[in-house]
Nucleic acid binder design. Sequence first.
DNA 1: TATAAAGTTTACGTTTACGTAAAGGTGAAA
DNA 2: TTTCACCTTTACGTAAACGTAAACTTTATA
Lengths: 137, 137
Amino acid sequence: MKAKTYSISDLSKEFAITTRTIRFYEQQGLLAPSRQGQTRIYSEKDRVRLMLTLRGKRLGFSLAETRELFDMYDSTREGDEKQLEYMLNILARKRADMEQQLKDIENLQRELASAEERCLSALSEVRKREKAQRAAS
Amino acid sequence: MKAKTYSISDLSKEFAITTRTIRFYEQQGLLAPSRQGQTRIYSEKDRVRLMLTLRGKRLGFSLAETRELFDMYDSTREGDEKQLEYMLNILARKRADMEQQLKDIENLQRELASAEERCLSALSEVRKREKAQRAAS
DNA sequence: TATAAAGTTTACGTTTACGTAAAGGTGAAA
DNA sequence: TTTCACCTTTACGTAAACGTAAACTTTATA
């Protein structure tokens, strides 16, 4: 039952972020580490929340949005009807957002691939010409 | 040969953004509309760039990044070897980013779906209990 | 015991991406 | 002709997400 814990620098190293960032997330209500005296002690749950927060960032979520999702997730246990309906709405919106992002990414991937092709062929053109030039000198 | 053009408010309506935003993007070098006197005239190319800029935003690109991509795309025509190699590097990085985002989205979609399930079953629980309560009164 | 290494709080600074006036020009309709 | 509606520039304001520095405590180690 020895629950694994982490120091702030453990987490900052693992996720390649500054301790300032981690404290800031706490201040924004995203993390709630326990304390040992003054020092923050992070549980596995805190670590997961940090991961989720960072993933949220990669997906364009604001910290406030992520926090809202966390809060709702927690309050879902209480089973308030209004809350549940509200959460379902948010979930539907997020899912729509993700659908859009999927399309965006697929399109961009296609474009990046074709840009890469054009780039490579332009590059081989340049190199062919260089070679010809060297041969002629 | 009558090339279609757009006014600033045309574009602001189409994309549901303010004219301030559009002018700001121009100031950041993302758009380059021609002028008729003082008034800006947007070409189809401008419109496409605006679309791409907005998509970039949805995918977490900064305006500076998007601008860099535009600039590179344009300068690719000139076929400078260094430039081409540089662009290929950037393209590779972006593709890796997009791969990560794809994974992020797939994971989040799964989680949203399961959160929705839990939410719905919690909701039906609540309603069942309410019904029972009404019947008992 | 002193000195580094890691932790803390407080607080002002910075960048990005616009928002929000203020003050004015231009052309068409009433 | 005046009154809209739409355009312009200039410029200060702002929210989000940290960066950075100062000043201090606690713990480990030489």
